[in-house]
Design a protein around this nucleic acid. Structure first.
Ligand code: ZN
Length: 293
DNA sequence: CGGACCACCTGTACGC
DNA sequence: TGCGTACAGGTGGTCC
């Protein structure tokens, strides 16, 4: 469940062990999710990891320019997205290899950075130093950094459903299905409300809810669903604090009504029918994602 | 612009 | 036990 808090948890773990170390070789398993597998083996060895950053749900390993003719292209970034089931962490070679581990970046001290991803919805790509700013600008604002006025401006006049906009990574980067539902529950806004119909009090509440929930989730090292663990292998705790997500039929923590599940923006969406009243003449929300033929 | 639906891939839970 | 179905943290495409 890598959304912003889980990715931040992974990044904080990697930041304590990776900077200063050099990639000496690369081994790959399945590569259908890697943009240019050959380029990894060709361009990474010899580069030192300088910084570890998070851009929304992306992990950025900033690498040195290295030396030698083939490194004449300057700084490089190894950019990794965890998709639905990705994991990234450092292990020793003798440590057991988790199933579905598809990339090993061997370090000069013998340890290896491993990428594991059951469904392979993640991404591994190289972004040249000169293209990194453009890459970052294609994404929206960090939800923990955006000002109130910019938050309002980005949603003003949009006639899409608020949840669809929260999930749009070009508006805000890092919010996913769990934290969208949790934030909307906290702010008492139905996920199918149109953004343009939210007043400024609604928007102010929503921004505060997003900040509070993401911050608390980071403190709890994210939500662990189906075995998510951080870079050290420890699970998160925030799933115990979910108020809406995954709680269909259970009582609302505020009013006791049964939490309902519907489909908004193509995703399962959990909300309290009483605290989060449905938009008046909105098209009836579909019940749940339908099976495909 | 916005939404519905499909695709990518693997695993798990559950009904029969 | 086995099989079919629904669903899962995400993104990106098509079609209307
Ligand atoms: Zn309620």
């Amino acid at each position: 469940m890598p959304e912003l808090p889980e990715v931040e948890t992974i990044v904080r773990g990697l930041r304590t062990v990776l900077p200063g170390h050099t990639i000496v070789s690369v081994r790959l398993g399945k590569t259908d999710f890697i943009e240019d597998p050959a380029a990894l083996a060709e361009l990474l060895p010899g580069r030192r990891i300088e910084r570890v950053e998070r851009l929304g749900k992306f992990i950025q390993l900033q690498l040195s320019a290295g030396s030698g003719a083939k490194h004449a292209d300057g700084q490089m970034n190894l950019v990794i997205h965890l998709g639905m089931t990705g994991w990234l962490g450092v292990r020793r070679p003798e440590d057991p290899v988790a199933p579905h581990t598809h990339a090993f970046f061997e370090l000069e001290d013998g340890r290896e950075l491993r990428y594991t991803d059951i469904r392979r919805f993640g991404q591994i790509r190289l972004v040249h130093g000169g293209n990194m700013a453009a890459f970052s600008e294609r994404l929206g604002k960090e939800p923990l950094e955006i000002s109130a006025s910019e938050f309002h401006a980005r949603l003003a006049g949009r006639r899409a459903r608020i949840k669809a906009l929260l999930l749009d990574q070009s508006i805000f980067r890092g919010i996913g299905n769990i934290y969208a539902d949790e934030s909307l529950w906290q702010a008492r806004i139905h996920p199918a409300r149109l953004a343009a119909r939210l007043n400024s009090a609604d928007l102010a509440r929503l921004r505060k809810a997003i900040r509070r929930i993401l911050q608390h989730a980071i403190e709890d090292r994210g939500s662990s669903i189906s075995n998510f663990v951080d870079a050290e292998g420890q699970p998160g705790e925030y799933q115990q604090r979910h108020r809406a997500y995954g709680r269909e039929g259970k009582p609302c923590f505020r009013c006791g009504s049964k939490i309902r599940r519907g489909s908004v923006a193509g995703r399962s969406s959990y909300f309290c029918p009483r605290c989060q009243p449905a938009p008046r003449r909105a098209r009836a929300m579909r019940n749940a994602p339908k099976p495909r033929g």
